[in-house]
Amino acid sequence: MARRNDHRPEELKALTLKLVDEFLQNEPAHQLSLRKAAKLVGYSAGTLINLFGSYSYLLLAVNGETMDRLADKLQQAIEAASSPKQKLVAMAHAYQVFALTHPHHWRLVFEHRLAEGEAIPEWQQQRIDRLLLLVAGCVAPIYPDIDDDTLQLRVRTIWASVHGIVQLTLEDKLFGSPGVDGGKLIDDLLENCLPVGSQT
């Protein structure tokens, strides 16, 4: 087992996040615990508590890295498309691909809860804001005449709809006939079900 002084704090934090990330590639978060995370890195549970503040904040730090990777994938999808509507569709598909490729990471982002009354740290809120800004950047040109409050509502409505499709796809609860998949539902949603304008 590694000794306490084998790594500097930032090195140990990076190592912990790396090993937990590798764990989530194959196992769901509910199979992890503080004790198991400590065993992965070869340090005591107390050392990880001192490093992250709590097991909950360790998971939040993992979520932060996941959201960074997700945002990068969405940004790449946006940059590869041309019109605002195509960017929105490409981003929605990239979101689905990410969830299907990293299901345990994706679930942890949405299932993890801080203790009641505990505020989301600023560094995590910035990640949430970045994702919403990516969506808003695609939606705003489609609706050039709406005010900011309406735009923010529309951004959340569209993305909540995409998120719901992705979640049902991931849980295999679309209840459709063979051949119906989340990708087709996303296309139908953005093409027909929401008035996303005439830009193609």
Rank of each mutant, 00 (worst) to 15 (best):
A160Y: 02
G117H: 07
C193W: 06
E122Y: 06
C193H: 13
S82Q: 14
P195K: 03
L194W: 12
G117E: 06
G182F: 08
I142W: 04
N192K: 12
L108R: 05
N192H: 15
I120Q: 08
Q86R: 09
L194R: 10
A80C: 07
L151A: 14
D145H: 15
K85N: 04
F98K: 05
K184N: 08
F98P: 05
R107H: 11
V155Q: 09
A99K: 02
E116Y: 06
L170V: 02
P141F: 06
L131S: 11
A136S: 09
G182Q: 09
W123F: 09
H104C: 01
P103G: 02
D145P: 00
A94D: 12
S161N: 13
R154F: 11
G117F: 01
V97A: 08
Q124C: 12
A119K: 13
I120N: 09
R107Q: 14
M91D: 04
D147V: 10
L114Q: 02
E118F: 00
H104S: 00
E191S: 15
W123Q: 03
G137V: 06
G137M: 00
E79C: 10
V97C: 03
L153V: 05
S83V: 05
A77V: 12
T157Y: 07
K184C: 01
L185R: 07
G179K: 05
Q86S: 03
Q76D: 14
K173W: 04
D149E: 15
E118R: 10
L189I: 10
E111N: 14
Q75M: 07
P84V: 01
L194A: 11
I128H: 13
G182D: 11
E191D: 15
E171F: 01
A77H: 15
W123L: 03
I186C: 01
Q124S: 14
Q76I: 13
F175R: 03
I142D: 04
I146G: 02
A92T: 05
Q125M: 15
S177I: 08
T150V: 01
H104T: 03
V109P: 00
A99Q: 02
S83L: 08
R154C: 12
P141N: 06
K85Q: 14
F175S: 03
L132M: 10
G137E: 13
D187M: 07
S83E: 05
V166M: 08
T157S: 12
A90I: 08
A81Q: 03
E116C: 00
A90R: 08
L190W: 11
G183P: 00
T157E: 09
V97H: 08
D129I: 15
I128E: 08
V135Q: 04
K73G: 00
M91P: 05
Y95D: 09
C138N: 08
P103F: 01
Q75H: 06
L131K: 13
L133D: 15
D129N: 12
E118C: 05
A90Q: 07
D147C: 11
Q75L: 14
I120G: 00
T150Y: 13
I120K: 04
Q167Y: 06
T101V: 00
V139W: 02
A92D: 05
E116V: 04
A119L: 13
E116K: 03
I146Y: 10
A81I: 05
D148S: 13
Q75N: 05
L153E: 07
T101S: 08
I128S: 07
S177A: 07
D129A: 15
I128A: 07
Q152E: 15
A94L: 02
G176W: 06
L132T: 12
